[in-house]
Amino acid sequence: MGSSYHQFCPVAKAMELLDERWTLLVVRELVSGSQRFNELRRGLPRMSPSLLSRRLQQLVRAGVVARHADGSDVRYLLTDAGHELRPVVEALGAWGIRWVGELGEADLDPSLLLWDMHRHVDHSAVPDGRTVVHFHFRTLPADLRHWWLVITPGEVDVCDVDPGHEVNVTVTADLRALVEVWRGDLTWPAALRAGTVALAGPEALRRALPRWFELSDFAPVPRPVPSAGPVRA
């Protein structure tokens, strides 16, 4: 646990645990459904494994997370105390998307985007059987440019190496544009009209693809109406 604020205020006591770097993002991933260490790493791609391990140990000691081991299968599950942090995470995310709108280039991560998208597939809208969506981020370095989602009933795999299956639809996009679509800052039709996102494949699948994905949990959050500025006499 981090250093003490030496205040009896319960906000201060909570922040002694939660304001250490990455801690609340680990909780975010657990709230989002990740349970295994490698799943947590996929949702926190820029966090070192050693730091993730330390933060999990701290959360276990604090009673926020319980570690369950069944042989080599180790899962990290939220306790009652951990589940009570869900509205905290949701409120922070809603506040952040409403009031902290600017995204730097370093904030745009295809690994995190595809990991988040894979958790929001609407299986009832995807064709039966196996559906493969290839994502081509045209401006990224070669090792980050190509990603695949392999969607089967009840399961979605994220691949950064060609899985070898026939591709049903290819999404060619500027990473920023697809992130903005995902966050609800830009609509699919607007991105397609602008050419910052393009779809290739059979027409029926191209038309259907936006319905295959439920957007980020924070996409519906209302944004502030821009001020018209001071009224001049």
Rank of each mutant, 00 (worst) to 15 (best):
T152C: 01
V132Y: 15
L92C: 06
L92Q: 10
S111L: 01
L144Q: 14
H136R: 14
E90L: 09
D162G: 07
P163S: 14
E102A: 01
L112D: 12
W148S: 10
H165W: 09
L108M: 02
L114C: 08
L144V: 02
A142L: 07
F137C: 04
V126F: 05
P141G: 12
H123P: 03
V158H: 06
D107N: 10
G101K: 00
D109T: 07
V156E: 03
D143W: 04
V161P: 04
T131Q: 03
G93A: 10
D160F: 03
D122L: 12
E102Y: 04
I97D: 13
S111M: 00
L114T: 15
R130P: 02
G96V: 05
E90Q: 14
E105N: 03
D116W: 13
W148M: 05
L140S: 12
A91M: 11
D160S: 09
W95N: 09
G93S: 08
V158A: 06
E105W: 03
I97Y: 15
W99Q: 08
G129C: 06
D116I: 06
D122T: 09
S111D: 01
H120Q: 12
G96D: 13
R138K: 08
D122H: 10
E155Y: 13
I97M: 12
G129D: 04
W95I: 04
V100W: 14
H120F: 06
H118T: 11
G154A: 09
A94T: 07
F137A: 07
P153M: 08
T152Q: 00
D143A: 07
W147E: 10
A91Y: 12
L103D: 07
G164D: 07
V100P: 00
D160W: 04
F135M: 02
D107L: 02
D143I: 03
D107R: 07
W99H: 12
D122K: 12
G104A: 11
P153W: 10
H136I: 03
D128V: 10
V126S: 11
V121H: 08
E166H: 04
W147D: 05
W95A: 05
G101D: 00
V150K: 15
G129P: 02
D109H: 11
R98E: 10
E155T: 15
L112R: 15
R119M: 11
L103F: 06
E90K: 14
W95K: 04
L114P: 07
T131D: 02
G164F: 10
H118N: 09
P110M: 08
W147K: 14
D128P: 12
L92A: 13
H136C: 03
T131V: 08
T131K: 01
D116A: 14
E155S: 08
A106N: 03
D128I: 05
D107C: 05
R98W: 06
G96K: 13
C159I: 01
R98K: 07
V126L: 08
V100C: 09
V121P: 02
V156S: 01
G101P: 00
D143Q: 13
E90V: 09
S111Q: 02
H118E: 12
V132W: 15
G104N: 05
S124Q: 13
H123E: 06
E166N: 02
L114G: 05
D109M: 03
